[in-house]
């Protein structure tokens, strides 16, 4: 009959209306600023720079290769290379970013910088409450504001960070092995030469 569906619909909304006062599980809304749900592990907002150890400046993994700067679709990254070099995690001297700025008002959170980085130096943060009253300066982050410890990275993306650490450790082990091999080869090379000319009296070093 005409109107039957209307009454059914009215009954449904009435049930919801009354039910929302009775049962708490009907109200699924999270009252955001007071209560918040844990963010999913894969959530991401804006990039940050990872550093190892206690000193952020010494520990920055970034070597200022500028790949991310070139790949960034909205061009929100600005990098200036350093003149001098500092040792990286393997101990090899590398240049480092004298300046590393990200304008997060331009950043579109695409994660391409993270994907192209060969040094696992830039990762995605999940901090999204970045409101500021300074539209330009407040949203332009320099390398100090961007630096986050590896522990922080482990806290926000545990699985991913563990993988990264394993990979880095493997690379470091490989590099050390290689260095050892090189040293051994050099020693082996030096040994017969020394055996051939013992008369010179030089001590092997």
């Amino acid at each position: 009959m005409l109107g039957e569906g209307l009454l059914k619909g009215l009954g449904e909304t009435a049930r919801n209306f009354a039910g929302s006062f009775v049962s708490k599980e009907r109200l699924t809304t999270v009252q955001y600023p007071e209560e918040r749900e844990p963010l999913p592990e894969a959530s991401r907002a804006f990039p940050f720079l990872v550093y190892d150890g206690a000193d952020w400046e010494a520990g920055l993994r970034c070597v200022a290769c500028q790949i991310c700067e070139k790949e960034c679709p909205p061009k929100c990254i600005y990098i200036e290379k350093s003149k001098d070099k500092k040792p990286d995690y393997v101990g090899k001297p590398q240049i480092y970013p004298a300046k590393f700025d990200i304008d997060i008002s331009v950043c579109m959170s695409c994660q391409i910088c993270v994907e192209v980085c060969p040094f696992e130096a830039i990762k995605m943060d999940n901090q999204f409450e970045l409101a500021t009253d300074d539209r330009f300066g407040g949203l332009l982050y320099d390398r100090k504001e961007l630096a986050r410890s590896n522990e922080y990275y482990h806290k926000i993306h545990p699985t991913e960070a563990a993988e990264v650490d394993a990979r880095l450790a493997e690379e470091k082990a490989k590099a050390e092995e290689k260095a050892k091999a090189v040293a051994a080869a050099a020693a082996a090379k030096a040994a017969p030469a020394m055996a051939a000319k013992p008369a010179e009296g030089a001590q092997p070093q």
Binding site: T13, N16, F17, G19, S20, F21, R26, L27, T28, T29, Q31
Partner: peptide, 13 residues
């Protein structure tokens, strides 16, 4: 408030 309750929300609070 009423519409909120019908949609299982709290409404303005």
């Amino acid at each position: 408030k009423g519409l909120g309750r019908m949609q299982n929300r709290i409404g303005p609070n």
